[in-house]
Design a protein around this nucleic acid. Sequence first.
DNA 1: GCCAACGTTGGC
DNA 2: GCCAACGTTGGC
Length: 153
Amino acid sequence: MASLRKHITMQYWLLKSEPDVFGIHDLAKKPKQVAVWDGVRNYQARNMLRDLFKKNDLAFFYHSSCEQPGIVGVVKIVKAGYPDPTQIKNDKLPWYAVDVKLVKKFPRVITLIELRAQRSLENMVVLRKGNRLSVMPVTASEWQVVHHLIGEN
DNA sequence: GCCAACGTTGGC
DNA sequence: GCCAACGTTGGC
């Protein structure tokens, strides 16, 4: 029963980062391969971090604003939403962070071009025109499709 | 570097 | 509360 409940409440996410600032290789070098996912300064993204992210949720690590934008690996949420330590301290503290741990680096980048070519991913949030969120949900089927693209399950 | 798309700000 | 101006994101 416990495992069934866990399965039902499991959420998948996509976290965007510029590799020049913080890429998956930087995460791999961290102690225990854990890093604070901080610096999110968008209210919609903040609300997801604060209200919806749960410990043990899984997320794709996405590289943006670089030569090969795309999904580069998987991380696990090891600490759910808490006040972002990088924000300026005042009485409000509106921003939130989570801690992520590297689960795996994919053997290659699953590029944006490749993702766009999949009919089964046509509703994926990251592919929507004008999307600028750095935190966004991924459905279970989208999660599976992406893994199939690299021959993993 | 360009530009579309979106979020935020601030005058009214 | 409207909306123009501005700033930022991010693919190309």
